[in-house]
């Protein structure tokens, strides 16, 4: 049930962050995306925090979904505890790696 809830909560968070991302990346000037534009945006602490939270929601959502689908198979279901721990470790590693990358941006 926890995985089920995590997937729903992260879906709501994704909806919020994806909307912010789409509006600011694609629907407000300048209407082209270049490295300079992304660099300028990610140099501000607010955008760093927004993108780090966005990354976290994506990772939780993807991992909860994959875990649910994989454990639909009876053979994987029997190892669900080990798979859950593996998923948590993958999320933590990917999050640390991604967050460090976002945090490193400067003008």
């Amino acid at each position: 049930m926890l995985t089920f809830k995590l997937q729903r909560w992260s879906a709501i968070a994704l909806l919020v962050f994806l909307t912010i991302h789409m509006i600011f990346m694609h629907y407000v000037p300048p209407f082209h995306i270049s490295f300079d534009v992304v660099q300028a945006r990610l140099s501000t602490p607010t955008w760093k925090i927004i993108d780090i939270l966005f990354l976290f929601s994506v990772l939780v959502h993807a991992m909860a979904g994959s875990y649910q689908v994989i454990t639909d198979f009876e053979s994987a279901f029997n190892y669900r505890k080990a798979l859950a721990w593996a998923s948590v470790i993958i999320v933590i590693l990917a999050f640390v790696y991604g967050a460090k990358t976002i945090w490193a941006f400067q003008l």
Binding site: M1, F4, T71, D72, F77
Partner: peptide, 11 residues
Amino acid sequence: VSQADGVARCH
């Protein structure tokens, strides 16, 4: 029904 093989497994 809240266990891992219960309601959360319905797609």
